[in-house]
Design a binder for these strands. Structure first.
Lengths: 370, 370
DNA sequence: CACGCAGGCTAAAACGTTTCGGACAATCCG
DNA sequence: CGGATTGTCCGAAACGTTTTAGCCTGCGTG
């Protein structure tokens, strides 16, 4: 019994430490460390000797020891709501793919937690005080988002996917939500559509609120009544909402064009359209934001749909790289607009609208408070 | 310049350590530590005094110091493929929700990385050797999965969401994929369907392969030819596959029933069905696995569809709790079957099939090698 | 020849915990 | 009343790194 116990202990070979390596090479711990970390006060011959031996013995620095002494974790925190207020949806997955990709390149980890939204702030506080992470990713901001206030106040590095009214004070990655839908509205109106349905996302979040704003501003600038576009907002990015809201929208038979907030809903809506005998690109005009979700091949709808296309995965990559450089040397906020492009369906004519309006402005458009 | 620099440094108040707390309370570091960790060799009076003061000063143990000395990280690793072989899809998100929820309850973190699949094993190796995590979650296993071989060989705690041919040797959480589709097939056949289309998931993964097996075994036991069910496999869990494969399946006009592997595809397929003038529950029978994705309210289709319902989020919770208890005291493998229930549509009669067949077996059904 | 300097290496302190072994009183028991 | 026991507390070592400050040796220079 005791024997087997001991046996098992000896079997579980101890991980090789820097001390083992030092003994093996008959060098000091200091030299090993400095060689492996690329300092220039170690001879080239010794360095390669150390590197080879480290590889051979399978030495990996204990990350917790490193973190303890350097006070840097090389981890990025990402706190999810565990209740229903914010929903883990397919778009999130796409962003995550990009984040993981770029974080990995620079040997950063993503540490995730779910947390009820009423105790979220506490979670951020905890994570920063117990040295768990170097910085945070903030997803799906709402107007007046308390997380942003907190992190700003405590001077913790973070980057927001999206913008709020304090967008001047922190780093973010975003698309020009207002601008995209402003231009989309212009495009539809220029092509004669006067009864448009807009199936928006959850307007408690700034991204959706900005889209509504873009539509409204377009109508204002065109001198058209607000009723030109009827807006249907949904809390759920997919599932049956695409069908249900399409049905609801088309209850108004004057509708000639539908704008979707997500290609997922646009595709779901197809079921309802065909039930009603409508065919996209023929007797109903369909436009949608296309986030390039990589398991959906929207190319099948090219020509039939009009797309405003921007890669969410790319946004994820930018979020990660922004946050990492922020963690390495905190500087002034880094703000990035992810580019987008229009792919106009066959039933619309781009030349009917002023080219200046459709051109994405190169400068960063301001966030417009709701 | 130097002044402001100093100012800023002093502004960034140092985090409070256990030593600060000890000095403040005029107690030893040891006592603080033992009081906070619930050891019984500290007086109740002192303990509450310590706890209160710790709370007041906002003391949080440095997790990296803890991890260094205890050799336990309280982190679970979850490594994603960053290439396209495995796809981050909405089902993944659902599992993740459950995992995050339960991990959080026990103060565990999830650390994620993306890694190209050809170097995956190296990533696992790295994470365990540099003390990053205590154990791993393995997702979407394939037959002969190399990750499982590796972790088994190196004696690292892990739990698999799904099963492979080595299911006897490790911990897993799974549903009875084969059994569910075995029973579903029986149900359809008993109700007179002789031309059934099965739209399966990606059959490189064991979950989908087991489903196909369930169908095949049902046909064998029923003495029906294999052609009774035509199987269409898809690499993508959603997007346009639901529509495309439905179209492909119904090219055979004799088809009277469609079985979907995911409610997402079933819903997408509705577009195609209505195009073809088919109505679920009336002139076409629709059955589907329902993973209870929480942003999809499938109840709308109750009565019209037949569901085999099992909660993926529940699976996620079980995965987390299994892995955590495995990390705390490695013991014999823990195997868990997530329950499921049938919800039969109005166009099917449950009583036509032998009750014994439809009853989920209480014992764990063996994994059947492909 | 003395001096300064650069290159290559190292000892020791530090990071912030947990835990082992023991110390010191007070209490109990025969 | 003395020894064992129990209840609280503590000092010091340990976890595995990085970094600071400094030590040699050899070499070029005035």
């Amino acid at each position: 019994m005791d024997q087997t116990g001991r046996l098992r202990l000896s079997e579980a070979r101890r991980r090789v430490t820097i001390r083992d390596l030092a003994r093996d090479l008959d060098l000091s711990i200091t030299t090993i460390s400095r060689a492996l970390n690329g300092h220039d006060d170690v001879g080239e011959a010794t360095r390669t000797r150390i590197k080879e031996r480290a590889e051979a013995l399978g030495y990996r620095p204990n990350r917790n020891a490193q973190r303890l002494v350097t006070q840097r974790t090389h981890s990025l925190g990402w706190i999810q709501s565990s209740d229903d207020e914010k929903i883990l949806d397919p778009h999130f997955v796409e962003v995550m793919g990009g984040v993981l990709h770029t974080a990995r390149e620079k040997h950063y980890d993503i540490v995730m937690t779910g947390e009820a939204s009423e105790s979220q702030i506490l979670a951020y506080d905890r994570y920063v005080r117990d040295n768990s992470v170097d910085g945070f990713i903030i997803d799906l901001p709402m107007p007046g988002d308390a997380r942003i206030d907190f992190l700003l106040e405590h001077n913790v590095p973070f980057v927001v996917h999206g913008r709020t009214e304090r967008h001047g004070e922190y780093s973010w990655v975003d698309i020009d939500n207002a601008g995209i839908f402003y231009r989309l509205t212009h495009l539809l109106v220029a092509n004669g559509h006067r009864h448009i349905a807009f199936i928006n996302g959850d307007e408690r979040f700034t991204f959706a609120a900005q889209r509504r704003l873009g539509v409204r501003h377009a109508l204002r600038d065109l001198g058209l009544p607000r009723e030109t576009v009827t807006i249907h907002a949904s809390r759920h990015p997919m599932g049956l909402t695409g069908q249900n809201l399409t049905k609801q929208a088309l209850a108004d038979t004057r509708i000639t064009a539908i704008v979707y907030s997500s290609v997922l809903m646009a595709i779901e809506g197809q079921a309802t359209l065909s039930e009603l005998g409508r065919v996209a690109g023929q007797n109903i005009c369909v436009a949608t934001m296309d986030d390039q979700l990589h398991y959906i091949d929207a190319s099948q709808y090219e020509g039939k749909f009009t797309f405003a296309r921007s890669s969410l995965r790319e946004a994820g990559k930018l979020i990660a790289s922004t946050l990492m450089s922020l963690c390495e040397r905190p500087e002034t906020p880094i703000r990035t607009l992810v580019p987008y492009h229009f792919f106009v369906g066959n039933d619309l004519d781009l030349s009917k609208v002023d080219a200046d309006i459709m051109k994405p402005s190169t400068q960063i458009p301001p966030y417009e408070p709701v």
